[in-house]
Amino acid sequence: MSDTSIQLLSTKTTTTGDSEHLAALHAALVERATRESAVDATYRVVDSPVGALLLAATEAGVVRVAFDVEDHDRVLESLGASVGSRILRGGNRLDPLARELDDYFAGGRRGFDVPVDLRLARGFRLSVLHHLQQIPYGSTESYGQVAVATGSPRAVRAVGSACATNPLPIVVPCHRVVRSDGSLGGYLGGLGAKERLLALEHAA
């Protein structure tokens, strides 16, 4: 879209003062920029039973899910440094994930079908994330079991670190990893969120 077009749109929204019209224009601009690969990522914030969640996606797939306690502004700054600074709010790229999350929290979904972009994890941490995707809904594994499954039985602490830095909590279910004695262990979104997610899955 040319600078002239953007200027004309800006003038029109200013004179009408119509917030709905402004929102529609913004959405159209985001969609066009996305189609033309003029953005590195788009994001939106959705409400959930475990608090506000920031969702972000690149052209390859969902790249980030962040809890409110992580500080969404800091998450966006970090994304700007890792995936590119052209990050826009809005668009429909994240609509499928928003719907799947609604279904999940309603107890009607046991897994996520949206494509994911795991570029924020590398090496052993990436191996852990791949394994986490295989832990069945409603089940748990210990940090030690995950370490064994990823071929590094002594790397229990590294598994904990991989879970603590998981860029896609809930979608890549690190909440299903607990201590060997059955206690919860840590969680990026707080123990209350982890407890709620496990309770939701056990009740289904």
Rank of each mutant, 00 (worst) to 15 (best):
T4L: 14
S5H: 11
L8I: 12
S10H: 12
T13S: 08
T15F: 12
A23T: 08
A24G: 01
R32F: 03
E36R: 12
A38L: 15
A38T: 05
Y43T: 05
D47Y: 00
V50Q: 05
L55Y: 02
A57I: 00
E59C: 00
E59T: 12
R64H: 02
A66M: 08
R74P: 00
V75L: 10
L76V: 07
L76Q: 11
L76T: 02
E77K: 14
E77G: 05
E77P: 00
S78V: 06
I87H: 11
L88I: 04
R89V: 10
R89K: 15
G90S: 14
G91K: 03
L94K: 03
L97K: 03
F105K: 06
G107W: 09
R110Q: 11
G111S: 15
G111V: 01
F112A: 07
D113S: 15
L118H: 02
R119W: 02
G123V: 02
F124K: 08
F124A: 15
V128C: 10
H130M: 06
H130W: 05
T140H: 05
E141W: 07
Q145S: 12
V148W: 04
S152D: 13
S152M: 06
R157F: 12
C163S: 06
L168K: 05
P169R: 09
V171D: 11
V177G: 02
V178A: 03
R179D: 05
S180G: 07
G186A: 13
G189R: 07
A193H: 05
E195G: 13
E195Y: 10
A199T: 15
L200N: 08
H202D: 06
A203S: 15
